[in-house]
C-alpha cells in the first residue's frame, strides 16, 4: 500500500527532529531555531513548546511522563519540567564532559540510553575537549535516587538513533563509520546484569562511487516489535525512505518519502496509528495509512 505523507507543519528550512507523542499532540525539535514545537492534530496548529533550547535534538518521555531532551550544543541531557524550567542531568563520565547527545531511549527502569556522537561545530566551539570515542551512554539512578552516567558501548563509531525493545531485552542502535563507510542497524542483547552483549547486524548500508549510503537516522517501534526507520538519501543508494524491519532484520517493506533526508519518526494519534516523520529541511509529515500501530513507553496503554 502506498503510504500517504501529509505535510502538517513546516518546512522550517532547518532540521526537525526528535518527534515525541505527549498523549494528545506531537512535540518535535526545530534544532536550528532553538525551539521545541508542538503540533496539535485536533486543531492543526503548531505552537512553541520551548524556546532557547540550544539545539535540543532527540526528545523522549519516560514511562512516568517526564520529558527528556538531548541538548546537543550544551553537551548534556536535560529534563523539561512542567513548570517551564529545565534541569540538567549529569554530564561527566569519569570526570570528562561527554560529547553531543543526539537521540535517546528510556527503558522501563527509567534508565536513559543515549547516543553521544561528536558534532563538528561543537569541536570548534566548545571549551571542553570531547571523548576519543563516540558511544552509547546511559543515565541511571543509584539506590539513593542520585543519577550516574555510564558508558555502554565500546564498539560504536558514530551512533545515532536507538531503541529499547518492548521486552527490554534488546537495544537497537544505528551506527555508521567514516572509516569503513558502512552504516549498520545493530541489535545488542541487554543482559540481565544491565550490560550489553555482542551485537548482531540486522542491516547494512554500503557505499559506491556516489559515496556512502545514508543509514538510519531515527527510528521507532510498532506493537509487533518491528522497527520503523528513517534512512536513505537521493545522493546515493536507493533514495530517502521509511524502512520496516522485522525484529530479526527482515525488510518487510519500504516507503519512499516525498522529500530528501527523513530524520526521525514516531507514532502518535489516539490509537498510535499515525506515523510522524521529520526531515533535514524541517518538514513534519503525518502518515495515517501505514497499517502499523506504534508501541510507546508513554503514554501508558489505556
Amino acid at each position: 500500500m502506498e503510504w500517504n505523507f501529509e505535510l502538517v507543519a513546516g518546512p522550517y528550512g532547518g532540521t526537525t527532529e526528535g518527534p515525541a507523542w505527549d498523549g494528545s499532540a506531537l512535540l518535535f525539535s526545530f534544532t536550528h531555531g532553538n525551539l521545541v514545537l508542538r503540533y496539535n492534530p485536533t486543531t492543526g496548529q503548531t505552537t512553541e513548546f520551548r524556546k532557547h533550547t540550544n539545539r535540543t535534538n532527540g526528545l523522549a518521555f519516560s514511562a512516568r511522563g517526564e520529558l527528556f531532551a538531548c541538548q546537543q550544543f550544551s553537551r548534556r541531557i536535560i529534563r523539561f519540567n512542567p513548570d517551564g524550567s529545565s534541569a540538567p542531568m549529569p554530564y561527566l563520565l569519569d570526570g570528562q564532559y561527554h560529547n553531543n547527545p543526539n537521540d535517546l531511549a528510556i527503558d522501563k527502569q527509567d534508565r536513559i540510553w543515549f547516543s553521544d556522537p561528536i558534532h563538528r561545530l561543537s569541536l570548534m566551539s566548545s571549551p571542553q575537549p570531547h571523548f576519543e570515542h563516540q558511544s552509547v551512554l546511559r543515565l541511571e539512578q543509584r539506590f539513593d535516587r542520585s543519577w550516574i552516567l555510564r558508558r555502554m558501548t565500546f564498539d560504536t563509531s558514530s551512533p545515532n538513533g536507538l531503541l529499547v525493545s518492548e521486552d527490554q531485552k534488546t537495544l537497537y542502535v544505528a551506527d555508521s563509520s567514516p572509516v569503513t563507510r558502512l552504516a549498520e542497524l545493530r541489535a545488542y542483547p541487554i543482559r540481565d546484569d544491565g550490560n550489553l552483549g555482542a551485537y548482531t547486524v540486522l542491516h547494512t548500508w554500503g557505499h559506491d562511487h556516489r559515496g556512502a549510503q545514508r543509514g538510519i537516522d531515527g527510528m521507532c517501534l510498532d506493537e509487533a516489535g518491528n522497527i520503523i526507520a528513517c534512512a536513505g538519501a537521493n545522493r546515493s543508494g536507493a533514495g530517502p525512505m521509511i524502512y520496516v524491519f522485522s525484529p530479526t532484520g527482515r525488510v518487510l517493506s519500504t516507503h519512499p518519502t516525498p522529500v530528501d533526508d527523513p530524520t526521525n519518526c514516531t507514532f502518535g494519534g489516539p490509537n498510535l496509528e499515525d506515523l510522524y516523520v521529520t526531515t533535514l529541511k524541517g518538514h513534519l509529515f503525518k502518515v495515517s495509512n501505514t497499517g502499523h500501530r506504534g508501541w510507546l513507553i508513554y503514554p501508558p496503554k489505556s
Binding site: 524556546k51 550544551s74 536535560i78 529545565s86 540538567p88 554530564y91 571542553q128
Partner: peptide
C-alpha cells in the same frame, strides 16, 4: 555545562 545550577532554561 559545568557552569550551570539547577535550572538551565533561558
Amino acid at each position: 555545562p559545568g557552569m550551570c545550577d539547577q535550572d538551565v532554561q533561558k
